[in-house]
Design a protein around this nucleic acid. Structure first.
Length: 357
DNA sequence: GATCCGTGGGG
DNA sequence: TCCCCAAGGAT
């Protein structure tokens, strides 16, 4: 059974930029980028990353803002922040040499059991099992698991451990992930091409399109947000850097906040700007409305041009604030929903600028 | 153990 | 348009 998978992998495995790579730094970066993120999305970010941070030492020396700028658009920004923190820890604790024991690797921020197994098997051919989304799906189908995978994690880890080819852990882990990504897909699995067809309980029972069982999901709540593009008399815009811990931590944004019951967007924006920045603004024309879905809620950004009236801007509910021109704004990492606001500002501003000469 | 944490693409 | 889900980890 292991042999049939490895033979399939030898002929049908994907050719990916990090395959055959022996530098643990490069393996590590690929594993972090691939968390909850498809290969196609990762590849351009992966290439760009090493132009900016060719070595682990250069990553450790970088400023967090540079790291987040390269990560901009990839999402789950704690991954980028943790990559940076872990690089500094590796330089400090291990002399810049990526650690090679499971215990040490698991202590690095952003690395859990699956990522640790992925790194140790891919970089050092160590027999450490993994349980990513692909493996969960493959094993759930293989065994015809009758509960959602996340309700049977200890069982799935046992199966992953038992199946792992201890003679070829590097290729085996890559192979089972490729199987899940290319044949044993979430919808319409290509069972006729599968090397494990004869071993697959779901296929034998005709259940491959019913399994794995779905996880329980609750409907996403929706929030309406008032957002301010605050202009001063020099034609600069006020942006703020979000607090470290939570959603989009460390990224820049246009200030604003949640609309309260019975409140107009004008009132909301004046209130939020006073609370967060301690300044007064006049709310003007609506610039754009942006709908965006995060992983656990949806928002509508109602964006208004505002005029700065007075008060000294203070970083009350953020890390930092800055007045910037539209030309400078590209230097700062912004979340995706905000990039639509920037695009709208450009569209609107260029004709204005040309009219003014 | 349940929640939080982004974004893009497919059906 | 809407829902699903993708190389998960931290709290």
């Amino acid at each position: 059974m292991r042999r049939s998978l490895l033979t399939w992998y030898q002929h049908q495995g994907r050719d990916l930029p990090w395959r055959g790579e022996s530098d643990p730094y490069k393996i590590w970066v690929s594993e972090i980028m691939l968390q909850q993120t498809q290969v196609k999305t990762v590849i351009p970010y992966y290439q760009r990353w090493f132009k900016k941070f060719p070595t682990l030492e250069e990553l450790a020396r970088a400023d967090q803002q540079e790291v987040l700028k390269v990560w901009e658009g990839l999402g789950y920004y704690a991954r980028g922040r943790n990559l940076h923190k872990a690089a500094q820890k590796i330089v400090k604790d291990y002399g810049g040499i990526f650690p090679q024991t499971l215990e040490q690797v698991l202590k690095l921020p952003g690395i859990g059991r699956t990522t640790a197994g992925g790194i140790l098997s891919a970089a050092f051919n160590q027999p450490v099992s993994i349980l990513d989304g692909n493996v969960k799906r493959v094993l759930a189908r293989l065994t015809a698991l009758l509960v959602p995978p996340n309700q049977a994690l200890s069982q799935l880890w046992q199966w992953s451990d038992q199946l792992l080819d201890s003679e070829h852990p590097q290729d085996f882990n890559q192979a089972i992930m490729d199987l899940g990504a290319t044949l044993c897909t979430p919808k319409n699995p290509a069972c006729l091409l599968c090397p494990w067809q004869k071993h697959c309980q779901s296929y034998l029972e005709g259940l491959q399109n019913q399994l794995p069982m779905r996880e329980m999901t609750s409907p996403l709540p929706h929030k309406n947000i008032g957002v301010a593009v605050i202009w001063n008399e020099q034609g600069r815009i006020l942006i703020d850097r979000r607090l470290e811990g939570g959603l989009l931590g460390g990224l820049w944004e246009f200030p604003g906040g949640k609309l309260e019951a019975g409140e107009s967007y004008e009132d909301c924006i004046r209130r939020e700007i006073q609370e967060e920045l301690g300044i007064e603004v006049e709310v003007g024309d609506r610039l754009i409305t942006v709908n965006h879905a995060y992983s656990h809620f949806r928002i509508t950004l109602n964006v208004y041009h505002c005029r700065y009236l007075g008060g000294e801007p203070q970083a009350i509910e953020c890390q930092e604030i800055r007045w910037v021109t539209l030309d400078e704004i590209d230097q700062f990492p912004f979340p995706k929903a905000n990039s639509q606001i920037i695009a709208a500002l450009r569209d609107q501003n260029y004709p204005r600028a040309s009219n003014q000469g």
